[in-house]
Design a protein around this nucleic acid. Sequence first.
DNA 1: GATGAATGAGTATTCATTCAT
DNA 2: TATGAATGAATACTCATTCAT
Lengths: 205, 205, 205, 205
Amino acid sequence: MTEKQKRHSDPALAEARRNQVLTAAADCFRRKGYHGAGMAEISKTAGMSAGHIYNYFNSKEAIIEAIIQRDMEEMFSVFQQFEDDPGELLTNMLDGADHGVERHIDKEKNALELEMLAEAARNQKVAFLMQQSDTHARARFRRLLTGERSLVKDATDKELDARINVIFAMITGLAMRRTLYPELQKDTILLALRPALRTLLSPFN
Amino acid sequence: MTEKQKRHSDPALAEARRNQVLTAAADCFRRKGYHGAGMAEISKTAGMSAGHIYNYFNSKEAIIEAIIQRDMEEMFSVFQQFEDDPGELLTNMLDGADHGVERHIDKEKNALELEMLAEAARNQKVAFLMQQSDTHARARFRRLLTGERSLVKDATDKELDARINVIFAMITGLAMRRTLYPELQKDTILLALRPALRTLLSPFN
Amino acid sequence: MTEKQKRHSDPALAEARRNQVLTAAADCFRRKGYHGAGMAEISKTAGMSAGHIYNYFNSKEAIIEAIIQRDMEEMFSVFQQFEDDPGELLTNMLDGADHGVERHIDKEKNALELEMLAEAARNQKVAFLMQQSDTHARARFRRLLTGERSLVKDATDKELDARINVIFAMITGLAMRRTLYPELQKDTILLALRPALRTLLSPFN
Amino acid sequence: MTEKQKRHSDPALAEARRNQVLTAAADCFRRKGYHGAGMAEISKTAGMSAGHIYNYFNSKEAIIEAIIQRDMEEMFSVFQQFEDDPGELLTNMLDGADHGVERHIDKEKNALELEMLAEAARNQKVAFLMQQSDTHARARFRRLLTGERSLVKDATDKELDARINVIFAMITGLAMRRTLYPELQKDTILLALRPALRTLLSPFN
DNA sequence: GATGAATGAGTATTCATTCAT
DNA sequence: TATGAATGAATACTCATTCAT
């Protein structure tokens, strides 16, 4: 409960070590899951002793929390790529969907995300961190939707929220399709995904 | 390897006990996660000794497998309700979406589904069972889409598959929205969900 | 500790049931060892419920004790066969050695004997029972050695004891050779066993 | 299957700890038997936590295997003492029998050997290790019998094998006599053991 | 007499965490 | 700063034993 934080004489080194651990742990969690990956394996992957990790993190749980804080946003920032792209948003996204689906259908990556979501369902702190990231991601996407190049820039806030959430749901959901239906091909998905996206990015009549 | 099953002289009692365990275990898994919930807690929740549970299930894993087999199908059978409903499928589903979203936004239920999905990412057998259920659900939904009352009954197999998977993704994804954005309201979702569904259930162009 | 004994209305049936259990248990112990064989397996082999066995035996330990009491003597009565045989003892035994070795080199049987001996090393009661049997067997063998047809009938008590114990040791030891040297053949053994037996059954010098 | 072995930065300490465990375990197995002795008791006897033992041994089975490998050879190397002794083998052994019997009649040591033999009857790997040791011991003894100072150095291989096995049987068997007949005295045994040994170490007619 | 449902103490093993060095 | 030896509580699972029927 109490957040006691170690003092480090060389903050730069400390930061480097923290990242070493986070990267290693993320990798292990991805491969084995949060419960499946042991501190021993993480420490070996991180190239430092198990004991030493505790100079940077108070517990294994603190590690996954830090991973979320570091990686989460990226995880939900599917649409980052369209931020600086000129041209109509709809066109850009339809064109980018191909690449986007490909990236988000990666089973390994999904495993970690699932792990985190499941953890969020029962761990308040994890839930809070993920919600923050999600909020951030939604805000960013909203900016896209209300930008000059968007066809729905005049929609009400509520409608925008609706569009954003359904789009996000679709993306998250597609990521999980692979777990339940491994044979599913990217081009099959795109066949229906593109029309649905078009609808969600265009005015509703 | 060998599936040896205890003989029970009173099959009704045995079935009751099995369900006792499944219900208790589902509850525990929901609250603590598959790995977080111990047999001790499950047995206390089920109102029987830990040892006795093993007269009905060969392992903890067998329990989650049975839960999947019991619950999974129902989970994906959202569309069962439309099977016998007369009238155009699109209209029915748009009308039913209200109720459907409500049911699938239940946080508790989602927690268990997430747990299962996360486990599936690591556990072959769990994955297989969930895939079976999903296949079954897709088949049933496909029957709806190719039925007399469907607007897309003439679509190619591949296109049908696309539609089905994107719709399923949306449903699954929406379920998870609540974890990441608890304030999200049902009616907000419907605002964008209905148009998207209309697109996915109507001919493209 | 306290030896409470069940009353049985039909003593004959009770005795039959006891033997059913003992035979089944001996078989299981032989195949799986004392610790390896469970009451469940024993009860199935005996054709009665596990609970019912406890109407005849107070514990699993009581079963192995009873087995010893029933079987032990036979185990050490290798020489029974010569009791009624006419002719010189030495000749009889040398002739019988062939058959005797064959019988005592059976691995399965030895397993149970070993189990019992090991148990005797730490269980007072088992030890006592086995010692009783051994004493009985030695007495009987002594009778052979002091009988009319024996070449050493005039040896002192101590010398007789010596002969008996070394012979018994050899028999027991040979039984165990098979565990440590499975390729050992009966006829090889006899090559040296016969001369040794001749020495042990003839006057020294 | 894969034999992964923990790395230890201080091999001397590791070796000391391993021996601590082996000694403690041997003691516990002797008193309670392999199945009767729990890791908890072993760890307490060894003066370290149960968990820590697993840094040196992969399993309880690995412990008994290591004990065998450490102790077994010595157990069967009764005859080591005669290796460097000048003089006729027969004389040496008859003279040494006194001391040999004394050493091999130790009840405590026998208890452990019995335990191991009993385990070997059920456990393939244990059996294999003991057979290896036995083979080694027989080979060494054979060298004695075929040495310059032996009276039977010209015997056939098969006959030698016979002699060796009967002698070994006698030794092993005598060790067990004490369990079944605790009052048996060393000098009584020797009375018959010496003539038998003489026969087994001299040409057969 | 006979069952088998139910118990609960016991098992080996794992693993996050601590701490002396 | 860094190690890894050491801990001990927790884990899933087993099995002799009891007892209501």
